[in-house]
Design a protein around this nucleic acid. Structure first.
Lengths: 347, 347
DNA sequence: CTGTTAGCGCGTTCAT
DNA sequence: ATGAACGCGCTAACAG
């Protein structure tokens, strides 16, 4: 038996109005307008009729039509280049958590080609996680012509949009210096592919700090791996199986540090006693695991990012003060690499 | 010096028309309509003027307005529950590759709450990767009221939308049976969390086939891990370090199999000779690695999925023949677990 | 206080 | 090459 609205055609506000025997204005007021929610304007019986009709037809307001009138889409776009990176997942998670209560839907654009898309698909705000040098002009143009942007980039200038920075160098040096308090035989665990990424910076911090401390470089203490967790596990196993194995490992990402902890435990080493391990990034996984992971990273990064983005999305069209937001990095001393006094030095 | 269009306001087709000294209709035709590309209707000089004006103002057509008129958004939505799963990334990759040439933008919805979103945000087609039992009704409603859906689910019925299935059981049995040709000491490597996922099916295939072959269960041959690559690596290392180590490993996912291969090689075992390893899923990584990974899985799954979705997106509103698309699984015999004749049996 | 009329905003497209 | 209507939902102004 065919019920009402079984046509496969999307119901409009007019169909609802007709079925309920009222005007479209009334429907609009009842379903989303300022009147009708118990407040003054629409009587309860009428509101019920309208709601029933909408329900029967399966009516949903058309976002596109609403957007054209109100200028708001209740949508933010996250343009993420490396969807496989846990970092991207953290961004998504934080934004989803913050957006839900506001009735805003985060949509992910998993493509480096955001330039073509962002001009036409209008969102209330857009987060961009990387800008190639040849995209900088397009970025400025977009911002100039009404797109609200929040950009994560270490180099680009803020011109009509917000820029978020999280400069790794000093923080990474803090991590290595922390190990220096109790260790001399310090290894580095880092992906081999990282000259292009910030991993370059992260490795350089290791080399710098050690050379300034007068510790000679040891090539066999640099554990390169292919970027996977399994690769990091294997590389850490190799490091820790050496006759004069390192007493501390500086891993340039938290997930590598996690793999290193697994490897050490598998080899029967007590992490935080026989060997200290520190990561980079301050991800939630490290905080939750046991032993908890010592690490360096920005504080509250993802939540702050999400809040800024949503403030821009809900705020008035002209952002009050777009500018550069620099994230300071902190050292988080936890179990995997505790504080060491002179008495507990391992050399 | 302020250039034209530096207001921060989004330029409209009317502004372009005014600047170019033509009507909005002409602008529309030149920029996206059927006329204007050297074709009949708009003279070249006029078209040039229009393009110049649009460029100067930084004009981009407003998708929302266009959608309201044409009923098409040139967008497909991918609703993906487990964004961290490589499976999701493969879906994204395949759809992006297929959508690009068509001028269609895939947007990802990384939230299980697709129900609320899909009714209002209209895309030309929507892919949904999992349906909770309590969402089935909503699914039917959406399809009934004009949303074009492609659903991946083993249970849900096709009612006004396409359903894609990829039933794992028989394929997994093929994998274990393949190992049975040369082996008796067969281990299973599987995530510990998988009773809820299809991993349950995948483990059951192992238990079934072995018991039917009259091989007694050995608990120490079941390598459970935490779902991570590093965990799989560690579990495989344990299995292969046993005195009477297994001569073959059936891993319930390809990425676990990859980790097992790494672990075997690290232990000095020749994969495909000393030990055979087979995976489940037929991912591209397994095909590309060395030794190449023997596996079972659907053929051409992601590309076919992408093609179906985009056919629905570009097709006429009423899908010609929505139905169930069952993916047959195949056995891919490659280097990590080759064919074994009687002469090369390992028992 | 309750409900309607009418016009808006945008890009598209038919008829002139 | 243009004017004007169109599709959708929103909302100011108005009528009862």
């Amino acid at each position: 038996m065919a019920k009402a609205g079984s046509t496969g055609v999307r119901p409009t506000i007019r169909m609802v109005a007709e079925l309920a025997g009222v005007s479209t204005a009334t429907v609009s007021y009842v379903l989303s307008g300022r009147r009708g929610d118990g407040g003054p304007g629409v009587s309860d019986p009428t509101a019920e009729k309208v709601k029933a009709a909408a329900e029967r037809l399966g009516y949903r307001p058309n976002q596109a039509a609403r957007a054209i009138r109100t200028g708001r889409t209740n949508t933010v776009i996250l343009s993420l280049t490396m969807l496989s990176d846990p970092w991207s997942l953290s961004v998504i998670e934080a934004v989803q958590k913050a957006a839900g209560p506001l009735g805003i839907t985060p949509m992910i654009l998993g493509d480096a080609d955001w330039v073509k898309v962002l001009g036409t698909h209008n969102a209330d705000a857009v987060f961009v996680d990387a800008v190639r040098p040849d995209q900088r002009d397009d970025l400025r143009k977009l911002a100039k012509h009404g797109t609200t942007l929040v950009v994560f980039d270490e180099e680009v200038q803020a011109e009509g949009f917000d820029v978020i920075r999280s400069i790794a160098g000093p923080g990474c040096r803090m991590a290595v210096e922390h190990l220096l308090h109790g260790h001399r035989r310090i290894a580095c665990l880092t992906p081999a592919t990282s000259e292009a990424t910030s991993g370059g910076t992260r490795y350089r911090a290791y080399a710098d700090v050690l050379s300034r401390a007068g510790i000679p470089e040891r090539e066999d203490y640099v554990g390169l791996f292919d970027g996977t967790s399994a690769g990091a596990y294997a590389a850490a196993t190799r490091l820790l199986s050496m006759p004069d194995r390192p007493t501390a490992i500086y891993a340039t990402t938290d997930y590598a540090a996690v793999s290193a902890i697994n490897a050490a435990q598998r080899l029967g080493l007590a992490v935080g006693a026989d060997v200290d391990i520190i990561g980079v990034g301050n991800t939630v996984e490290g905080e939750r695991m046991s032993p908890s992971l010592s690490t360096v990273g920005p504080v509250d990064f993802f939540d702050k990012l999400a809040r800024l983005l949503l403030r821009r999305a809900t705020g008035h069209p002209a952002p009050e003060s777009p500018g550069v937001l620099d994230f300071p990095w902190h050292l988080f001393v936890r179990e995997s690499a505790p504080h060491r006094s002179a008495a507990t030095k391992l050399y």
